[in-house]
Amino acid sequence: MNNETIPQVDPPKAVVEARGLDLTFQTKDSPIQALKDVSLTIEQGDFVSFIGPSGCGKTTFLRCIAALEQPTGGNLTVNGMTPDEARRSRAYGYVFQAAGLYPWRTIAKNIKLPLEIMGYSRADQDERVKKVLQLVDLEGFGGKFPWQLSGGMQQRASIARALAFDADILLMDEPFGALDEIVRDHLNEQLLKLWERTNKTIAFVTHSIPEAVYLSTRIVVMSPRPGRITDVIESPLPKERPLDIRDTPEFLEVAHRVREGLRAGHAYDD
């Protein structure tokens, strides 16, 4: 019995691990290679953004992690399981481009939807709804119907819905793409705070460079035909990020690298 051993620091746990991932869609005319040889590790607590032009496979990759698409080659694990096992063990919450709230349910009942499906007790459901509504700043709106709220509020509600159950991964597919700049800034700031408080692992698809740089610890630059990773940029920015960090030289430097990466991927095409 030796209690004196030096406490070992856990090595960062790989949450998502992709090795040589391929995905080819069969269409009428010709097969389309949506993903080619994609390898990436996302670690516990990461905030990873995927950026690239449309058709670069960023959404497809996210959908593979969520087991909404089946890769045709390579290896992909989520929490050490296959994506489908991870889905069945409810390992992640998914936020789509549109809020996708059910119009016939109130905001609170919308957030309860996954909880009902996953069999949480009635009391637990109410408590969780209250908690996540607070997290996304929507207290007092639980009784409203989605169509009575603005687009930004609807999207916040859909994030709350993804946070309500105990998934430690949050997959977000251009969640703020349809919102205007001002609302988007506000939600970005809130999302960072939320990430800090909950310590979730977030994979975030976007096509906005400032958004990717502002939010992420790592930025994955992707490129189309075939969809592949062209660059992975570690962000040197601190975890604490006020909105005006976007005017600092460090921020502009990272943004510049992302833009270069995107351009390089594009040049390959010409």
Partner: peptide
Amino acid sequence: SETMQRDLMHTYAATPGQGLRKLRLPAAM
């Protein structure tokens, strides 16, 4: 029902019965 909402049900690992009761039947109303 929209594809996106069916995908959402899929990510919750909802059973076909749950998908029918909670999504497709109300959407069919």
